[in-house]
Design a protein around this nucleic acid. Structure first.
Length: 118
DNA sequence: AACTAAGTGAAGT
DNA sequence: ACTTCACTTAGTT
């Protein structure tokens, strides 16, 4: 068999997904954005849609999906899970970039990256 | 039609 | 003031 593709797991990202990944890719190291902001940036009125796209992120290490947090400054989810372990990993990654969480919330608001232009 | 890595508001503590 | 719960929203698959 020529192709060992696993159904839709490796399907080509849709236009919408590319938009989301592109926006996420603009987030500098040491900064974070909220799902809502990302949603607005990609012209999407639904933060959930963004979450779905990030979840299926094919550029896992490339696109900094771990720099996207919830609007209430809580860490949100990661890889489709809210498990302590996974979230812990996310927190650690962010901490390594200087983004510190305290009490489950972002410590410094100034770490929030504001999308500039348009 | 069903799902979602969210957001918001309300209520309780 | 902070935490928890339930409902709603908009968009994707």
């Amino acid at each position: 068999m020529p192709v060992t593709r696993k159904k839709e797991l490796r399907r080509v990202p849709t236009d919408f997904e590319f938009r989301v990944y592109g926006a996420a890719n603009l987030i500098p190291r040491g900064r974070v954005v909220t799902y809502k902001m990302l949603a607005e940036r990609v012209g999407c009125g639904s933060c959930r849609a963004v979450g779905q796209a990030l979840k299926r992120n094919p550029f896992s290490p490339g696109v900094p999906c771990h720099r996207v947090i919830a609007s209430d400054l809580s860490i949100g989810g990661f890889m489709g899970s809210y498990s302590s372990g996974v979230l812990e990993r996310k927190r650690k990654m962010l901490a390594r970039e200087g983004v510190v969480f305290s009490g489950g919330k972002l410590f410094q608001k100034k770490r929030i990256y504001k999308f500039s232009g348009r």
